[in-house]
Simulated assay, not measured.
Amino acid sequence: MAYRETEKMRQRKAEARRRIVECTYECVAEGGFRSARITRIAGLAGVATGTIYRHFESREDLFAEIFRTATQKEVDKVAEALDTPGDATTRLENALRQFAERALRGPMMAWSLIAEPVDPKLEEERLVYRRAYAEHFERAIREGIAEGCIPDHDARQSSTCLVGAIAESLVGPLSPTLASQNSLTETDKNRLVDSIVRFCVQGLTGSRR
């Protein structure tokens, strides 16, 4: 008789997978991908290390799922900020501010997503999501051009520049090494966010806001 997996067993497997993903996410948020050891994840999830490899082919596959989950949350927040009232420039300001403020509130996870040296598989995921951010920005820039609040120019190139500018400007403040040496106060963080938003908006519109 062919083996048939029962509903109870499917639920048990799904629950184990959920715990593995949640515990891996917590480990990355605490110390980045490099500190997320399979043995520690297994211990936190209450499973054997072999169980992890029954759900994920490799450590890189597990990390790729965490990367996709975490980054999609941030992309969705940017999309929400771009869907608020106001002209395109105002909405872009909201989105840029959302991006930077959320990164500074969760610096280790943000560092892991933006700049931590990672395996090629995760680097590919990073490029996919940088493009996702750029597509949202591009749409808003095109709307701004149509509204007349943003000068006519290459919206696709500008959107890519926005993603690069905001990510690069956060690398230093988010870096675990530099952050431990130069702890930012809330005032410092607010100034940093304001500076990033101002720079990006001025680059898009050519005027001060």
Rank of each mutant, 00 (worst) to 15 (best):
E80T: 03
L113S: 06
V201W: 05
A70E: 00
I38G: 01
E5H: 14
I145E: 02
G144D: 03
L178P: 06
Q202H: 09
L170C: 02
S58C: 05
N182S: 09
S175C: 05
I196D: 00
R97G: 00
E60C: 06
D154I: 07
A100I: 13
E135W: 06
E93W: 10
S58K: 04
L96I: 07
R40F: 04
I166F: 13
Q181S: 13
F67I: 13
I196Q: 00
D188W: 12
L82W: 01
G148H: 11
A14Y: 11
T160S: 06
G32K: 05
E74A: 12
S195E: 14
Q72K: 05
R19D: 00
G86F: 02
E80F: 10
L92C: 04
S112M: 04
A29V: 15
Y133I: 12
R17H: 06
N190V: 10
Q72T: 07
T24D: 01
A16S: 10
T51Y: 03
D61V: 14
L62I: 03
I66P: 00
R102Y: 14
A64Y: 08
S195F: 05
R10D: 06
V163S: 00
R191V: 07
A134H: 02
N182F: 02
E125K: 11
R4A: 08
H136F: 12
A81H: 02
L178N: 04
G50L: 12
R105A: 15
G32V: 12
Q202T: 14
Q72S: 10
M108A: 02
G144T: 10
A146W: 15
R18V: 07
Q157V: 07
T51Q: 11
A95R: 09
F199G: 03
E65C: 12
E30V: 12
R4D: 12
A70I: 03
T187N: 15
E7A: 07
F33Y: 08
G86Q: 08
A64S: 13
E168T: 09
S112A: 08
G164M: 09
V78R: 01
E80S: 05
E30N: 02
D152S: 11
E80L: 03
T49V: 04
G43E: 10
D194P: 05
G46N: 05
A146S: 07
T49Y: 10
